[in-house]
């Protein structure tokens, strides 16, 4: 499959001080939905805006659909659909007028009616942008990106701040675009979004890729399959205790998280009986025990020691 987006060793230093992106390389295939997952300030927006040709990198190379921004910017602009992290579209234009305006910039745009329908904005077609809800505004932002009939869609935090229903609507729109052969690059700090929507993703922290792969692969490799969390009376959280839990059968890694001990385990049915026995032997009592599937959140915590939200 041909490469849609490629960048090598991207760096961006703002004002000679803030190193927002520090040597980042990506390769995204045509037809893929690729996610950049990372906490606020990780450098996602900086990275995506460099790829979009809106920001010059301090160093590094970018190739989109085999073209570069230096030589083929006009052509690339026709091929890309972009939604920025925050754009406040003109409040006193109607939804249809806004879509028509953006359509007028492209040499072969799609019909506004089709896009309105596809984004479920038909009812609001004649309403002013200022009267839209958050979810409708976000759909309109994506509509302005889709109306140019792009080959590649860039979405920077498309669902931040939206209610669950609006988020799912947007996911459906992204999937439909992808099904029609489009390539998607999106950023998010929601792990569930990355997990459900993206074929592959790169986890970004402090301007670097700290892990890359399919969501499942990342979880299996780095999150452990299952997570067992418990709290036992009289247990101090020191290193010696952690080593003790690490020695239980089937445990891949151990960490402390907010007063709980978290075990990444491959086979809970082997670990849990052994855990119960060990707790009893040490003369303490279980106060809390849960098991759950590992998630990308666990991957991130494992890699950085921080949660995505609080990072």
């Amino acid at each position: 499959m041909p490469t849609a987006i490629q960048c090598r060793d991207l760096r961006k230093t703002y004002d000679g001080k803030v190193e927002a992106v520090r040597g980042l390389s990506l390769e995204i295939q045509a037809g893929e939905c690729f996610g950049l997952l990372g906490p606020n300030g990780a450098g996602k927006t900086t990275t995506i805006e460099i790829l979009e040709g809106l920001l010059a990198p301090t160093s590094g190379e970018v190739t989109i659909l085999g073209r570069t921004w230096q030589k083929d910017s006009r052509e690339l602009r026709e091929w890309l659909g972009i939604s920025l992290q925050e754009t406040r579209l003109s409040e006193k234009l109607s939804v249809r007028e806004t879509i028509e305006l953006f359509a007028s910039f492209y040499s072969q745009p799609r019909s506004s009616d089709e896009v309105l329908k596809e984004l479920q904005l038909e009812e609001k077609a004649d309403a002013w942008v200022g009267k839209l809800s958050g979810g409708q505004r976000q759909r309109l932002a994506v509509a302005t990106a889709l109306v140019g009939n792009p080959k590649v869609l860039f979405l920077d935090e498309p669902t931040t701040g939206l209610d669950p229903q609006s988020r799912r609507q947007l996911w459906d729109i992204v999937r439909a675009f992808q099904r029609n052969g489009g390539t998607v690059l999106l950023t998010t700090h929601y792990m569930d979004e990355a997990e459900r929507l993206c074929d592959r993703l790169a986890i970004i922290d402090h301007g670097q890729v700290i892990a890359e792969g399919t969501p499942l692969d990342l979880i299996e490799r780095l999150g452990g399959h299952h997570v067992v969390e418990f709290e036992a009376s009289g247990e101090s959280g020191d290193g010696a205790a952690l080593e003790h839990w690490q020695a239980l059968p089937g445990v891949e890694s151990v960490r402390h998280d907010d007063g709980l001990v978290c075990l990444n385990v491959r086979e809970p049915h082997l670990t849990i009986p052994a855990l119960l026995e060990a707790v009893q032997k040490r003369g303490s009592q279980l106060q809390h025990l849960t098991t759950r599937q590992a998630s990308l959140e666990d991957v991130f915590v494992r890699l950085t020691g921080r949660h995505l939200r609080e990072a």
Partner: peptide, 24 residues
């Protein structure tokens, strides 16, 4: 939304419906 969309063959871009002039 996805179910309502006309699904094209994978890989072909959606049909362009109009063509804009220089001054559009």
């Amino acid at each position: 939304v996805a179910q309502q969309m006309p699904v094209n063959e994978r890989g072909t871009p959606l049909r362009a419906v109009r063509r804009n002039g220089r001054w559009a």
